[in-house]
Design a protein around this nucleic acid. Structure first.
Lengths: 206, 206
DNA sequence: TTTATTATACCAACTAGTTTGTTTAAATTT
DNA sequence: AAATTTAAACAAACTAGTTGGTATAATAAA
């Protein structure tokens, strides 16, 4: 065998993610990545066939962690399953906690890619939409469970209510970056939680 | 006099905005702009000293239109001033109408720039944050007026509730582009309207 | 246990093309 | 005559990607 390439590959992934949030993908040159990682061009192209292959590997890793966080929040709130509304609110609270006390405004690679879509191949963009749809499925199930014991005070469209969580995440990321306000994301997830609390009321027995 | 350069300048602004939504700012070359507009390099640099000067002119024009739309929605709902809640809801409804029946998913230049901030000078980025803060001021005033005759059912932070509108706009833009769903933005503005409707209840007379 | 072998990981220099921006002189409008 | 636009050549820096060779470390043969 030879030496272990994983640390190098991981360094490339980590530093290029940081650079993409600063410069965008197009605005990030391979030379910049080499400077930050301290590796050479040969090493870079050994690990990634093209710059675009890096983009793809990055979004795959990012989406994997994203779904992991989602599932971890589901697990952590399993004890609340007896009351589906409590569970839904607890699920959101997990992300409020996650987004509290950050040292800088957070961002999302989905949004970064989405605002320069022509730079990426179909599969890369599809991976983003598929991951967002996983969030939709999860949120839909959580809300459906609530609707078994609760009435919605207003007419709601299940799908768009399910998507609303991702919408607020993405919007809060943009605004927190634009206003350089690191606590903003947690604040807006609280509004999401409020919204869910206000929508549902216990079913009356007819 | 000489001839009128405005049509050329406007064509540059219009086409480069389209291109930036496709490729990002870094990913958009001046040659691409020349191709789409059919003008020459000399003409481009006659109107804009640098590529960055174009970025600045673009965001200034975009922000000006944005604030114009905001003020037009304020004017259109002035007749509802007698009930501040009706007015707030009507204000949001104006944008629901605006975002209904679009032919393609909308996007926002603020978000586009925000995800490659290093490409722009301080003034350009500041113009974005200042414009978002104008939205904050407007929404804060609308909400303050509501609070004179209505109680909030939950404890709310005025500033973050005011920002929530821009957050939902920006988030809906990202997700609508990512999922290629043109009606999504209107749907999520409806959730915003729901939220406002659910928060407030008429003040009881103590 | 030393010596080859092999696959992996990495490096330094190079290439071909693209980028923004400049320059200059002539042509075209109003 | 003044303002705008074309056409075309040019430069300096930067771009993604290639090449030929080297280093590392585990393994296999002597």
């Amino acid at each position: 065998m030879g030496r272990d390439g994983k640390p190098t590959r991981d360094k490339i992934l980590a530093e290029s993610k940081t650079l993409i949030f600063e410069n965008g993908f197009s605005g990030t040159s391979i030379d910049q990545i080499l400077q930050r990682t301290g590796i050479t061009k040969g090493a870079f192209f050994y690990h990634f066939k093209t710059k675009n292959a890096l983009a793809r590997a990055l979004i795959e890793e990012y989406a994997k962690e994203d779904i992991l966080h989602m599932n971890q929040a589901l697990e952590k709130t399993e004890n609340l399953k007896s009351d589906a509304l409590e569970r839904l609110l607890g699920f959101i609270q997990e992300f409020i906690d996650m987004m509290s006390g950050l040292s800088e405004p957070p961002g999302c690679l989905y949004a970064s890619y989405t605002y320069e879509p022509s730079q990426f191949d179909k599969e890369t963009l599809q991976h983003i939409s598929e991951t967002i749809l996983k969030w939709r499925d999860t949120m839909q199930q959580l809300i459906k469970d609530v609707l078994k014991k609760y009435n919605a005070k207003i007419e709601i469209d299940l799908q768009s209510l399910a998507d609303h969580t991702v919408v607020i995440f993405e919007g809060a990321f943009v605004v927190s970056k634009a206003l350089n306000s690191k606590d903003l994301t947690a604040d807006h997830l609280k509004h999401l939680k409020n919204y869910f609390e206000l929508i549902f009321e216990p079913k009356s027995i007819d």
